[in-house]
Design a protein around this nucleic acid. Structure first.
Lengths: 272, 272
DNA sequence: CAGAGAAATGTAAGCGATTACATTTGCGGC
DNA sequence: GCCGCAAATGTAATCGCTTACATTTCTCTG
């Protein structure tokens, strides 16, 4: 097997303490000694064993990112973007990143218990037991895009209200007054946040409204297309649609609306 | 701090060996004893410490996935998909997944040296030194989508030839005989693989060809659009374009080709 | 019920580092 | 050349677990 600190100690004739210091606190070791250490280390292709180190220091320098969404994976662009941000930050330090999926929340729990992970980032709707287990052990924890109100926990969430405002304002400024709402199936928390905003803004901008302008759709391109066709063929159809997500937006645009029609979603817009 | 095996040992009046066995090899411990162990463990919220275990067993049950592409992150759908596959598989076992980025290949190297990781999956064009470090230490290694010929290493790569065949066949069957090639900047290896296939198939299907049908484009929507406009306004323009990737394909379609025109890329098609 | 063999449990030595604390070395001033 | 203090190095305990080997406890047979 590969070399250990003892091998280096033997080869260099120095104690393991010195070897350890040469690597971890170089300036606590005389120049000449450091040389000897590194020579021996090089010869043996030695590098301090991270597990031994973790054992002695009682820290793993590892954090975990858990995507807590039914069937969601890193393929979900939303979480991929978050993951990227985390990686960026983690890479600045000596820490490393573990990722896993909600399906495996039991494993995440195990990791919390087994102290393998120094901190958790949970994306999405995290299981309450998981949260309990982690925070109950005083392991640092951040929730991202969690869809419930959590007291005493650090959460990073989207500013739903402002997002909706941007959308509505954009459409309003383009002259639209009849704006339909193509909602998605969100958790009650997000749902409330987002659509409450829409209806408030609807009043604020004095938009025209009929109940037929509202539709809750599955996250499904084809059905969005069908529904949008229906929506747009009614009398006094909306001149614009606010879609809950990209898939719905694409479906709406696919329904071949008339020119001038506009479809907006959270952070980007498409028009015909 | 949290409970250790010794605490459980003390509380239950059993030796640490028994505690350890109760967790790792339950059937080597009598039913009644197991009960005592688990009761004590529960009371102390004990779970075997993964680091201690790794230290004793000399295995970390961790593998790493490194995305080795300039500036690439998990946001790259291609690697996200690979990552998902890996996660799926990893989750079946007790292993865990570390991810990092090419930018950090030095860190990956360190992990290899420090025996923190039992196996590596390198996606993309992995740095030769990294490969050397890993395989030189006999750490299991798989390359994914590596763009060079590697002897004696496990690689998983796309079947470029068949991919190209599918594209060309599709366009051919739709009646196209003048097919342009919108190439991307690939590594020489992929470039050769892919475009050699195209030109072979061009012969096989007896397609019409002019050098002006060939264009090497940057991975850039706007320039693709511009170039496509040029391409399509020539005399005897191609009736279809084979684009190297989604971005180029989208750019080509954006250039507002005439109806009937078709644009295909590796695994999906769009037509006007 | 004794005794043998199997099954269960215990003892203690690692695994590879770090780090108090002890010891040695080096250096400057007299 | 010697003393004293600071800097460098060494000694050995420790982190939490596993596991070979030793010992004890069962179980079953004659």
């Amino acid at each position: 097997m590969s070399a250990t600190i003892k091998d280096v100690s033997k080869l260099s004739g120095l104690s393991t303490a010195t070897i350890s210091r040469a690597f971890a606190e170089p300036d606590k070791v005389r120049e000449a000694t450091r040389q000897r250490v590194f020579e021996a280390a090089q010869a043996l292709r030695y590098q301090p064993n991270a597990i031994g180190r973790a054992m002695a220091m009682q820290r793993t320098e590892t954090i975990a990112f858990v995507i807590c969404k039914e069937q969601a994976t890193i393929l979900d662009e939303f979480y991929a973007a978050i993951c990227e941000g985390i990686m960026d930050e983690v890479n600045q330090s000596d820490y490393q990143l573990l990722i896993s999926t909600a399906a495996q929340w039991r494993k995440a729990e195990d990791k919390a218990r087994s102290k393998q992970v120094e901190g958790f980032i949970l994306g999405g709707h995290a299981d309450a037991r998981l949260i309990e287990e982690i925070s109950g052990r005083n392991i640092p924890l951040v929730l991202v895009n969690n869809d419930t109100d959590k007291e005493n926990l650090s959460c990073v969430v989207a500013d739903e209200f402002d997002g909706v405002r941007q959308v509505v304002k954009h459409l309003y400024q383009d002259g639209h007054r009849r704006i339909a709402l193509f909602a998605g199936h969100f958790s009650p928390y997000i749902f409330r946040q987002r659509y409450q905003a829409f209806f408030e803004l609807q009043k604020e901008y004095a938009l025209e409204w009929k109940d037929s302008y509202f539709h809750v759709s599955d996250r499904d391109f084809d059905s969005a297309t069908t529904e949008a066709t229906k929506l747009l063929s009614q009398e006094e159809p909306p001149t614009a649609v606010f879609a809950a997500n990209d898939i719905l937006a694409a479906g709406v645009l696919e329904s071949r609306p008339t020119p001038g029609f506009e479809c907006a979603r959270g952070c980007g817009f498409g028009r015909v």
